[in-house]
Amino acid sequence: MAKKESTFLSMVLTLFMVTLVAAGLLGSVYALTKEPIRLAELKKKNEAIQVVVPGFDNEPSQEVERIFMDGDSLYLYTARLGEEILGTAVETFTNKGFSGEFKLMVGFAPDGSIIDIAVIKHAETPGLGDKMEKGKSDFSVQFMGKHPDSFNIAVTKDRGDVDAITASTITSRAYCDAVTRAYGAFMESQKAN
């Protein structure tokens, strides 16, 4: 087959065809992956809720409250066992991480004390900032059972009560920022109800 000549019409037509085919391909791949992406995100969310407010028998991801704060939304999920409220899982964020934004799920007991914290999404450095994840270090353990009124959520360098991860003060600060924001949202929703 001979090489096609570069006339104006052939150039415009070719680019148009290439783009059309590309758009068609992407549209169908998008349609195919839409459901898996939604499920993957839902699964991550449910697993995090399971960790931070364990023992519920309802579907917390269906009982959502949205609170707008610092330019983005926080989501509050209520966990119940029968009629009793076990606690609230708050999906919170921070933009101050070492690699930008990350998201946490913070579980609060009805009295406002922290049950547990899980990381939903992050891009922090493996071996450094990712020690904030449960199981990679004891960093998140120090928050368990603490009440933000008596436990100052800030790293010790900022005169708080949180021991920062070694060499990851920025990540630790961002983590505290996200937890504080979660507590703010939790209090706001308590006041409203």
């Binding site: 090489k3 570069s6 006339t7 680019l15």
Partner: peptide, 15 residues
């Protein structure tokens, strides 16, 4: 062989 030489690069980029 279907792509004219002058728009080769933009076409490759789209692909």
């Amino acid at each position: 062989n279907l792509i004219p030489d002058k728009v080769r690069i933009p076409a490759f980029i789209v692909i």
